[in-house]
Design a protein around this nucleic acid. Sequence first.
DNA 1: AAATGTATGTCAGAATACTTACATGGGTCA
DNA 2: TGACCCATGTAAGTATTCTGACATACATTT
Lengths: 167, 167
Amino acid sequence: MGQGSESHDVETDTDGRTNDAAPVALESHLGYQLKHLQTALRSRMDETLRPLGLTTPQYNCLEQLRRRPGASNSELARGAFVTRQTMNTLLRGMQDRELVTRPVKADSGRVLPTRLTPAGERLLDRAASRVEAISDRMVSPLDEETRTMVTEALGLCIAALEAPENG
Amino acid sequence: MGQGSESHDVETDTDGRTNDAAPVALESHLGYQLKHLQTALRSRMDETLRPLGLTTPQYNCLEQLRRRPGASNSELARGAFVTRQTMNTLLRGMQDRELVTRPVKADSGRVLPTRLTPAGERLLDRAASRVEAISDRMVSPLDEETRTMVTEALGLCIAALEAPENG
DNA sequence: AAATGTATGTCAGAATACTTACATGGGTCA
DNA sequence: TGACCCATGTAAGTATTCTGACATACATTT
């Protein structure tokens, strides 16, 4: 093995006392776990989607579209946690590949309702089953009760972070 | 209100039948919750760090460095879930700001052990207390028991995703 | 009806992170 | 010792996403 793999036991507390200044193990920080898991999930999704010519953001967009047919660009952006501009770029690419369609001109307002094409739906079906396999693998160590508890807990964290600070 | 805020009750089942193909609510998908929470956390961290002239990745790097003084660039990259090149750029910028130091030449091997400067430590202290406030706010709705349970559950998910598939 | 406010779609430029690639240093093992 | 392998640091180019800006369309208010 290389010299980069040595153990770093910074958090080992030999005398058992709690130390205010001592850094807690990173693995006990939710934020760190979050980033770690997200990174791992993203990697697996990209891997499994690559054979289909899709990236994870593109898949997310298609999935949004299945749930909200005719959604606007801005709406999709909010649902995928990216900016309008990013979603716009994503949609352009998928329009060129005939996976989604958008009217050239808006019926009313400026909203251009986007929809999946039949080809887009077919590709999404294939992608979804692959992604589901990854998702299942991710939660496989958790029993049903734990899964719902974790999901609910994360929902509470989201709400706490998105709530206005103090006014 | 604008026309983008209409309700989209895609999963409302008017006839009460359960539909196999019907998409489950996004909020029940752990992957989606993960992305949502991560996005929210990142936003709050960037906000709170901006006054200090730090970005979230830079803060992560400094935090790593406190826990592993003298760590190599590659080691820091792995710990922060970015590529070596990205971490290299990050370190350059913080070297220029005299927050970290790296020897020009390696004692042995190619590893250039990085360390925090006193100024870096001071800035990190200020940053850490701000980040901790965000972190506390995030987990504030969770009791102690739930926190550890969630952290452990996420750890299991990480392991499941990172384990070699089947070979 | 005019003014105001808000949401949308889109362009341009900047920032960020990644992929590919290569040279170097140091272990491992025949 | 030499061949091999792996990890590191770094450069160049690409891809992705963001920030800032602007014009348009509708709703609301007065």
